[in-house]
Design a protein around this nucleic acid. Structure first.
Lengths: 336, 336
DNA sequence: CACCTGCTTGCACCCGGTAGCAAGATATTT
DNA sequence: AAATATCTTGCTACCGGGTGCAAGCAGGTG
């Protein structure tokens, strides 16, 4: 680890010697609310400043059985929406005196590995950010037995007893379908990115249900497999090549903005069609670039700050609910 | 911390009792290469499995003075390029048995705070990812005195003795300028996102120098203050509104793809100009969306994987160099 | 001036591991 | 079979703090 082994950090004991007090008094000076005279505190602080001392959080964590570290599991880095979420999440965690351990869940490092690792590091909580265990994985009794509490962010929890914070999908899809219906669209399509995911299924289900309420029962289903612009484009390409112009959908809702942007590119570029005149497009997430004049994408914004505050509330224990569902905001732009 | 205080994890001592051995033997069973009989190891492993034991990495870190945690400082979450970099970085760190602590540097939590915090958590290294201390901050003697080793990723180091891994800016700008010159452009402009940053200045300087070699000494300088599509668009808007069409630049190099995408939107949308016919555009980073047919942005790709491998090599000590400069790749598309 | 109260301070022991030594057990040599 | 070499195992001490108790000390009271 390059040099680190040779590094000598000052300890409370050394500060104590310098200040002519015991190490416990030094620790008290650094523990708010503990009983210590002003005079001793001053002497400790002077010595500490001279020696550049600060308490070893590792040792403290070991003794107090609380690390104030939170593992954040992420398994999909393709969605740029993750970045502002990570920004808000790290910011609010830090404000709450916590720190994020970012764990990349992938083929080499799966959920079970990651959870075991996080547990070994004694994290205070695990945030499953946009990811969830598959049901099968759960048969492992790795869970429960003293594992750190888990929380799901921005996706439905699939595990009993694991709370989740989500954007209200029912409200979102109702708003979207109402808007599309008002605009006069009647032949809707839905593009999912990964049909196995519960969030995906939920959005699609609500989309279908609300259209049914409007008397539209036929929903064209496209599937992109991955959440990337190319995948979105490819999915549209397949659809358009199979479908006679007269039978085409007049509006396509994409499960997220990235798919939507890829879809728009494909519709305009390779097929020379217009958005929204030939096919209208709706996304989900309000990714910055969708708002640019090139795309002007109608989308739905998740209440990022509120969601992050809620999950932190769950972690620190001020919120008890099992599931927090927060309303987002429909952003109407030129693509519909 | 919700429940965590009541959680009881099994310790080596308890496993020892169950297996009828001492705690040291239990620990040996979990320490590769230590001297222990097959029989004892089997008994320990059985007891450990039954009790669901795994070693406490916190305690180990305290005893070995090595946490295998690396703090990653990020201060700009606007650039989507950060996300694939974070993906690669976390993946490779995990493969090396390290884990990333993601720290958000912002107004509430500045570099000095963050460094102090990282140090208190005994991280093995700090990666300044796309961020660097300003020179003034360094007058603090907070550095050096046993602080964890720091490494700068994707930006020039501004601190003596702090190694950096960067994409070769000289090579990149030479390739870009050669390409633009070949294509026949002769009136170049350069848009920076934050002129205070050394990386920005460096790219601009090379751009200017290589054009000078081609006999073009006048470079129009635009400034966007921030790295966002809007900022890029605004900067172009200001420029176009001030400049008579005849005097305009014929190619604009933007410091990164996000600025470039904003610039393209603005040029096409509000001004009805064509890219590349009226103004050609070059970006930097090869952000996925720039490759879409809507933008088809000529750009330069940083060698992400090599850069990440290099910085990890520095951290684990297999690479000694002070600065590693790696060649990237010019991606020529329709915008030039 | 003795006595009680309450704050400070030092102490033994603990958190859950690691390091290195020495005794005990086993294997090898002569 | 005795002596020696090698491997196992348990132990003490330690990493750098935190906890609860008891002694020390101050101030206030009768």
């Amino acid at each position: 680890m390059r040099k680190r082994e040779t590094i000598r950090r000052t300890t409370a004991k050394e500060v104590a010697a310098a200040a002519g007090l015991s190490k416990w008094t030094v620790i008290r000076a650094f523990t708010p609310g503990s009983s210590i005279t002003e005079e001793s505190k001053r002497r400790v602080m002077e010595a500490a400043a001279a020696l550049n001392y600060s308490p070893n959080l590792l040792a403290r964590s070991l003794a107090t059985n609380s690390t104030r570290q939170v593992a954040v599991f992420v398994d999909d880095f393709r969605n740029p929406q993750k970045l502002p979420f990570l920004e808000t999440l790290t910011d609010r965690l830090q404000a709450a005196g916590l720190v994020a351990m970012l764990i990349n869940i992938n083929n080499h490092f799966d959920h079970v590995h990651a959870l075991l690792h996080a547990d070994q590091r004694q994290v205070d909580a695990v945030i499953l950010f946009g990811t969830a265990f598959r049901d099968e994985t759960l048969t492992d009794r790795q869970l429960g037995n003293g594992m750190p509490p888990m929380f799901v962010l921005a996706r439905d929890s699939q595990i009993d007893g694991v709370p989740a914070v989500v954007c209200d999908a029912e409200l979102a899809l109702r708003d979207i379908v109402n808007h599309l219906h008002e605009r006069g669209y009647r032949r809707p399509g839905f593009m999912s990115g990964a049909t196995a995911l519960s969030t995906a299924l939920r959005r699609r289900q609500h989309f279908t249900d609300f259209w049914a309420e409007k008397g539209v029962s036929e929903i064209e289903l496209l599937s992109a497999e991955k959440y990337s612009a190319e995948a979105g484009a490819e999915s549209v390409r397949n659809y358009l090549s199979q479908m006679a112009p007269a039978d085409r959908i007049d509006v396509l809702m994409c499960e997220n903005d990235i798919l939507a942007l890829g879809a728009i590119d494909e519709i305009r570029g390779r097929h020379g069609l217009r958005v929204p005149e030939d096919i209208a497009i709706v996304g989900f997430d309000n990714y910055e670039l969708g708002g640019s004049s090139a795309y002007s994408l109608t989308t739905y914004e998740q209440p990022r700050h509120e969601m992050v505050e809620a999950i932190i509330g769950m972690i620190v224990g001020t919120i008890e609910a099992e599931t927090v569902t927060l309303p987002g905001k429909l952003i109407i732009r030129g693509s519909t």
